[in-house]
């Protein structure tokens, strides 16, 4: 742990070790699915549908508990009643952890921008790595989000992640 957080994997003789580590993390993303609304069905199609099949990219959607997950996908409308639960389960995830916000509702409230019970954006509750716009986004957009996140993981320095750097979000399609 100390090795990772010290920044020694960034350069010098241990750089290949850091790259190997990133490469392994990239292709074994254990994903906690937080399916909330319409987007959940599209996420399900992307995961379980034979046509899309995200598992071929090394995303494993099996953990039913956030404690074994590296990635959490918030797909759908987040309500004020739900938001505390999301925060709580996010905090249970081990570091380094990644968040994909899928769909307009999770991004900014979407069509419920003036509702009295909808949280206008999940980024008010937890930090977001990748935003996927769309209402709902197509499964292809979700796959693109996974690919972009994997690129970020490949090129990032684990130390930065631990120190809270490198949070600039990616927006799919931009």
């Amino acid at each position: 742990m100390g090795l990772m957080t010290s920044g020694a994997l960034r350069k010098g003789p241990l750089k290949p070790v850091g790259e190997l580590l990133n490469y392994s993390r990239k292709y074994s993303l254990w994903m906690f699915q937080w399916g909330l609304a319409c987007c959940a069905i599209e996420m399900g199609v992307a995961l379980a549908g034979p046509r899309y099949d995200v598992m071929r990219l090394g995303v494993i959607p099996f953990p039913a508990s956030p404690r074994q997950a590296d990635l959490i996908v918030i797909s759908g409308t987040v309500t004020d009643k739900m938001a505390p639960a999301i925060r709580r389960l996010y905090e249970q995830m081990p570091d380094p952890k990644y968040v994909i916000s899928m769909g307009s509702c999770a991004n900014c409230g979407g069509p419920y921008w003036d509702s009295y019970s909808v949280t206008k954006g999940i980024d008010q509750v937890i930090p977001v790595d990748v935003y996927v716009p769309g209402c709902p986004p197509r499964p292809e957009a979700f796959i693109q989000a996974i690919v972009m996140l994997q690129e970020r993981i490949q090129h990032e320095d684990p130390a930065d992640r631990w120190q809270g750097k490198g949070w600039e979000p990616i927006v799919v399609g931009q």
Binding site: I41, T79, K81
Partner: peptide, 29 residues
């Protein structure tokens, strides 16, 4: 109630074509 979005209130602030857009998402399947 974890998915309550306040449809009945929101329809009062939308025109009829806008309501049509909104109610697509009640039963999203």
């Amino acid at each position: 109630g974890y998915m309550h979005r306040g449809y009945e209130k929101l329809t009062e602030y939308r025109t009829y074509p806008q309501v049509t857009t909104l109610i697509n998402r009640i039963d999203w399947l």
